[in-house]
Design a protein around this nucleic acid. Structure first.
Length: 200
DNA sequence: CGGGGGATTACCT
DNA sequence: GGTAATCCCCCGA
């Protein structure tokens, strides 16, 4: 059963103040909501990756606290956004209780609301399956950039937030993370099994 | 202040 | 399958 915008309920901070792997798996099937003025876009989260903080070489937090990474040790449930290859943004959610580091990378969405707007931002006339099937593509589709870094994803007042999704929890497939050069063998990528909107 | 790294994507053969 | 594009961030000097 799919929620409608009237029933969009953001997760409380406590949802994110937990073990990163649990949060990652629980985010599958939830909805990412983007408001620009009166326009709403939303998509179901179908692919994520867990980054386990200081002990995970692939996690930016492994470099220690810097201007860019100090957000990891701050309040959970906020957006961590960075620019990669000078061209694409990646959207993460900060996890773990305050004082501990971790995040979940949102890697793909199944477009649900405002699909035409997403196609517009992407300058894509293709089918909806490829509009947001990658971390850079979904940021482009939802017009997400560094100006949203640090945004609270637990509030409906935010231009970007996450809400509870499908009532039934999905079957989950576990694989290696994509594209990472450090710790490439770790099985920390989670997808909704057989969902056509995942990357690859 | 210069240089290299990077969790990607699109477009080429 | 291979690779160029492109820039913020971090580090070392």
């Amino acid at each position: 059963m799919m929620p409608t915008p009237e029933n969009f309920i953001p997760h409380p901070v406590g949802f994110y103040a937990r073990n990163t792997i649990d949060v990652a798996r629980d985010l599958l099937g939830c909805y990412l909501v983007r408001n620009i003025g009166a326009k709403m876009m939303a998509g179901k989260i179908v692919e994520v990756e867990a980054y386990l903080g200081e002990s995970d070489p692939a996690c930016h937090a492994a470099a220690g606290k810097t201007k860019r990474t100090k957000i990891f040790w701050g309040r959970p449930g906020v957006a961590y956004i960075f620019l990669i290859y000078g061209a694409h943004y990646c959207l993460n959610v900060i996890t773990m209780p305050e004082g501990e580091a971790g995040c979940v990378l949102i890697r793909a969405l199944e477009p649900l609301l405002g699909v035409e707007a997403m196609a517009h931002w992407r300058s894509a006339r293709e089918g909806s399956e490829t509009i947001a099937n990658g971390p850079g593509k979904l940021c482009r589709a939802l017009s997400i950039d560094l100006s949203l870094n640090g945004m609270d994803l637990t509030s409906e007042q935010s231009p970007l937030y996450i809400v509870s999704g499908d009532v039934q929890s999905p079957a989950i497939e576990t694989t290696k993370r994509i594209g990472v050069t450090k710790a490439p063998e770790s099985l920390l990528r989670y997808t909704i099994k057989d969902n056509r909107f995942c990357s690859r």
